[in-house]
Write a protein that binds this DNA or RNA. Structure first.
Lengths: 121, 121
DNA sequence: TCGCTGTTTAACATATTTGTTAATTAACCG
DNA sequence: CGGTTAATTAACAAATATGTTAAACAGCGA
């Protein structure tokens, strides 16, 4: 058991973990997936789309907003939500930093060899 | 409020959401990050690296295993854990499927993305 | 102003998650 | 066999998350 550095090697690991946690709920994941496809969607439309009450969706949106995954824009009485691009980029970057594990159909050993070969990133 | 299809448009959304949930815990995220860098690591070594007890790490590994994110190999009295490549690929593909949201601004990254450009959408 | 629509906050019950320590299982070695 | 190491499972407390309904807030328009 070491200090907290041991659980947080790279910069911003805690933040991306919180973003993954936000994406971990099926409803929130579906919300993000839908926003990424449809662009801006008002809260009310999302409530109709998912099988929980409007207050529940509202709080899910709050969680996503707090995690930095969505942006909110006020237009009249509606709140229009959309995906925050930077957050998606952060997640994509993380997957790319470990791309040796998913590029092609690599075995675990191949992945490690690939990691050795381009150790930059 | 529609039926459950509305919260699960694409195939396997529930599964990837569970994987995000597994990655959402800071310790589990750090475990995955470390396994992706180091390859196979026995449970005991992980326990030493993170600031919680061995049983706690063991259960985190169980969660990761159940979510399909890690593989377990028994060697003598040790259990060697490693990242399951397919799960990483699934997450990477999800980010790529929404790359319109993040590919805009990083030029060094654009080259990497260009390599994947032929694959989907 | 009043009522209507859109959305969030409050209050609360229930379920899940996470951590701890103690006990258990399994393999190794004298 | 008996002791030691490696890891998991059991039992339980505390914290967090999720859903509901009711109330509150805010903008729109007659």
């Amino acid at each position: 058991m070491l200090n907290s550095d041991a659980t947080d090697h790279a910069t911003g690991n805690a933040e991306i973990a919180r973003q993954f946690a936000a994406l971990g709920d099926p409803i929130r994941f579906a919300i993000i997936d839908r926003l990424a496809r449809e662009g801006e969607v008002p809260a009310g439309a999302l409530s109709e789309g998912f099988a929980v009450s409007a207050p529940a969706v509202s709080r899910h949106l709050g969680v996503l907003h707090k995690a930095g995954l969505v942006q909110r824009r006020v237009e009249g009485q509606r709140r229009l939500y959309s995906v925050a691009p930077e957050s998606m980029r952060r997640i994509a970057l993380w997957t790319l930093s470990h791309r040796a594990f998913w590029q092609g159909s690599l075995s675990r050993l191949d992945a490690l060899i690939a990691l050795e070969e381009h150790s930059d990133d």
